[in-house]
Amino acid sequence: MANHPNALRKCVQAGWGILTNAYIKGFLPGLPPIYQGNLKQVCVPGMNCYSCPGALGSCPIGAMQAVFDGRHRQFAFYVVGYAALIGLVVGRFVCGWLCLFGLIQELLYKIPTPKLTIPAPADKPLRYLKYLILLVMVFLLPFIVRSQYGVGEPFFCKYVCPVGTLEGGIPLVLLNEALRATLGWLFRWKFFLLIMCVVASVFIYRPFCKYLCPLGAFYGLFQKVSLVRMRVDEHVCVDCGKCARACKMNVDPHKTPNSNECIRCRECVNACPMHALSMGIGALKPSAGEEAGEDAPAPSAEAQ
């Protein structure tokens, strides 16, 4: 029973992954290998390579770079505005509920092996790596570095993104003999990164999301201002620490309920024996004590 909320999330993650990668014809030989319709004008909210044979929408990170690295050096107002809007409404809820690559990492983590927790002195600086990747590989390098023909490159997609290799590269190479003939060092490098990511996911919960994902970093910037937020009712919380122990992203929801690292999976909400944690629009309903301020009587009888 306790796993029902988590099962719901897994269903949503899987359902969304299937829905946004439902172009079956892309997987059939002899037809255009990817979807070429107008839906691709719109980005899906999560990481989803638009070169996946089944992809119906665009990837926000790929689309940002596509505008940045164009001949005219334009800022990607459309995609950045779109991603900012999603961040302002739901924050990293997308990571927890609407990202297929996140689901894949979670399923890999279910493989029964000893699990690793990166020690805090290494974990904290590593968490900043995704912001560096967002700034340098998504925003700056595609904008600044130009080839002799005056166009840039999608640096993150080209040199790092394991999602593109998994969802786009491997299926297309398997389905297309002509592409197989062109494999070189870049594919081997990206395949190596993907394998590292897959292996790490068996031992560490969502390592790509924690340390590398530029889209998670972008949405994380909006966590504290997003409409959908976490809230701790301090008048009910007994500081038992169960929420922090339940959080696989290593957040302490009691101290930082809207941490940049929280993917809003609600595992802390389900773990709280006092129902002190909640997630919803804005600050949700404050408890009677909080509404009335410090002088209000403790809502002991009602809260229990």
């Binding site: 979807y35 390579c49 596509a66 786009g168 190479v173 990206k190």
Partner: peptide, 12 residues
């Protein structure tokens, strides 16, 4: 960009 196979994205 999205309706053509992104060779960089897939590692080619």
């Amino acid at each position: 960009k999205a309706i053509n196979i992104c060779m960089e994205c897939i590692g080619l």
